[in-house]
Design a binder for these strands. Structure first.
Lengths: 212, 212
DNA sequence: GTCTATAGACAGATAGAC
DNA sequence: GTCTATCTGTCTATAGAC
């Protein structure tokens, strides 16, 4: 861990910088969540960390590059656990995620605001979301194919994948505006089960992973 | 039509003003579509109409009030025809709307960006979208109740209403980012039919109103 | 009804001191 | 690594001439 090179130890300051960067990314996530990317300011982000906006730019170079870090950060946060799941387990994991999301409106709001904002011309996160949706559709497609069986048509599976993701995203907007009016996990489960039932397949169990 | 009062005729200038206002609202819709409400500027709106941003403020007083007019305008545009439809006809109308939407990405983008932006704290369109979603859920609920029959539980109908609207909105985001990857009307129809089938009800006809 | 002029605030980004 | 200072641009809004 110690550095052979003299002077101020490079690894220590690098570690400090990494911590600072993490602080800034977290603050940026909060600000972009509340105000969107275009509406949020570096000044507000810097204020939460306790530095000036020039300090933020020192670490990330531009507001746009900071957004990319925020999105990458979310990927890492959500990643572990879902990659190895397949078939019904993966679909159940989606419902679990919908349930978990009811306890973290901040993340839901960030995702909702940024994904919608990304459809506008020239938005820096456009490619990121396009890729993310394509990957998601592919994952859900595979899960539906495994559960639905090989005799289910390719078109139905593709539409089913789009629909499952669309329900999750669309419910989030309604839920953020009126939490009492929408039951995200129950509604998602009903849609998935209806799709499977329409294909002549058994539905997911009522409560796959938890008891409540 | 002629005015008994002397001087410059009040109705003529009012008619001119109304036309100007309509021009401004249309320009505002385009700008808010591309940049969102917070990202769009009065200057860009004014430029499209060929006046200065102060001229815009003369007609509407503030940027916020202009947004309200844009939203009201969209309501009128979409309104005619759908209010009188019930049951299966209403559900078919939703699918027709999804098909129509593939030919007007501008309106779809405006709705997508503004509805998502509205979930952020203090957004001026928040109440408008909350009411709109509540009304929509109620309409879809009634249609599902009629088609599904009285023996379908209230909770299922409520979740079904949320799900149908969520699919429409969620598909729009995916479609705007990657039009070739999503078939909005076909996917919506599949979801509605799956829900009805899950409740033991006959599905909607394959092509309710058009032949292609 | 639209303009010019101007206010007053805030944006992102750069340069250079320490 | 963070600061001060500054640049350059943009924003909403008001006041008042025409």
């Amino acid at each position: 861990m110690t550095e052979p090179t003299g002077g101020t130890s490079t690894p220590r300051v690098t570690a400090r910088a990494a911590r600072r960067r993490a602080e800034i990314v977290e603050a940026a996530r909060q600000v972009f969540t509340s105000r969107g990317f275009r509406g949020g300011s570096l000044g507000e982000i810097a204020e939460r960390v306790g530095i000036t906006h020039q300090g933020v730019l020192h670490h990330f170079g531009s507001k746009e590059r900071l957004l990319v870090e925020v999105l990458r950060d979310r990927d890492i946060e959500d990643g572990p656990g879902s990659e190895t799941l397949t078939g019904a387990a993966f679909l159940s994991h989606l419902i679990d995620t919908a349930r978990l999301n009811t306890t973290r409106s901040g993340i839901v709001q960030a995702y909702t605001v940024l994904s919608a904002e990304s459809v506008t011309p020239g938005h820096p996160a456009q490619g990121w979301f396009r890729t993310r949706f394509a990957d998601l559709r592919s994952e859900v497609y595979q899960a539906l194919r495994i559960v639905g069986g090989i005799e289910v048509g390719e078109a139905e599976l593709e539409r089913g994948a789009s629909a499952v993701i669309a329900v999750m995203d669309g419910l989030q907007v309604q839920w953020l505006l009126d939490p009492a009016a929408v039951d995200m996990p129950a509604t998602l489960r009903m849609v998935i089960n209806s799709l499977l039932a329409g294909w002549g397949r058994p539905a997911l169990p009522q409560e796959p992973n938890i008891t409540a």
